[in-house]
Design a protein around this nucleic acid. Structure first.
Lengths: 192, 192
DNA sequence: GTCTATAAATAGATAGAC
DNA sequence: GTCTATCTATTTATAGAC
């Protein structure tokens, strides 16, 4: 009996995890409104009806999916970087990230506008993921302001580069943001 | 007869202009997917059925509304600024802009992610508005790269500040972006 | 917990009167 | 050109069988 319960619990957690991974992937790629619950469930290899035994509404899925997307993107980042600060920013502000060739995309950049019409729970979740991102940047800079400038150039630069329908200009923009971060952080070091 | 034709033409142009102004306002505030044709037409004081004698589809409206929003935002900006470079960036990266207190909001910042799932015509229009924005910045900087860093900090910083559900952090972010632009442009001047 | 079937609401788009 | 009425498709969410 206990064994069966444990299996059931594990089974449910697996299903929920599959749904969240599917949602994180689809939302960051196609935005909130363009993705239906049906699509999320299909990618998770389940049917639409099963959704509501895991979440009360699509809004609830939004919030949890953003956290999941943040974790997935960070893990993939850590795994594939040399660890240097400029290595991280270059990978973040890369053509591969912009072109959605990475397995996991940063929800902060890819959903920055989508967030705006969602409820406060969703916004709070986005804000928390952002704060984690900022904390990470702070470890690499002396001043908080430089950290904020860095994340603005990373997240904002990537979001803009993705929106532009001109590859050459978009490439220039990504490089410019990398250089901007390098300039501001090196000034920050001189001051300290 | 000629007089009547002229009046008709004027009337139609007025209606189309009202629809575009309404759409520019609603889209920048609430995003593409959240705004229905019905809402656009209601704000333009017309009914749903009249829409299709001006536009073939909602997509066609998107594209034209982005251009309209860009023009409206720029005009309001010019009208209310002292003309100095930092005056412009401070007004752009202001609490009023972030809080949607301005009459016209910048479509580049408020739709940067929404654009992603639209067709190429819409993306091209967004790109053109962006190019105009960059050209404007270039007049204030020596290098093209500094201009790109400036627009990334403006548009990206505003988009992020609006997404964050923490007023204090959001305020810091706006200030940091203003300072970042000041730093990068002053370095740019020294080099020349 | 997962499935099929369906309810209820809303959207984009069209038809025809004036 | 603008209106009312309607078609068709899609969505979130629920009901009930297994």
């Amino acid at each position: 009996m206990k064994k069966t319960m444990a299996w059931h619990k594990q089974h449910k957690e697996n299903s929920k995890n599959k749904i969240l991974t599917s949602a994180a992937n689809l939302f960051t790629r196609f935005g909130f409104e363009k993705v239906s619950i049906n699509q999320v469930m299909e990618k998770a290899e389940l049917t639409r009806g099963a959704f509501y035994s895991h979440f009360n509404s699509k809004s609830e899925l939004y919030a949890q999916a953003i956290t999941k997307a943040g974790v997935l993107a960070r893990d993939e980042h850590i795994k594939n970087c040399d660890g240097s600060f400029m290595g991280v920013t270059k990978r973040y502000l890369s053509n591969e990230h912009r072109n959605k060739k990475l397995k996991n995309l940063c929800p902060l950049a890819f959903l920055v506008t989508d967030i705006n019409q969602q409820n406060n729970t969703v916004k709070d979740t986005y804000t928390n993921v952002f704060k984690g991102f900022v904390e990470n940047a702070k470890q690499q800079t002396n001043s908080n302001q430089t950290a904020l400038q860095t994340v603005a150039l990373m997240i904002g630069g990537l979001a803009l580069a993705k929106a532009i329908n001109d590859t050459s200009l978009s490439d220039d923009l990504l490089i410019a943001c990398q250089e901007g971060i390098a300039t501001l952080t090196s000034l920050d070091e001189e001051v300290s």
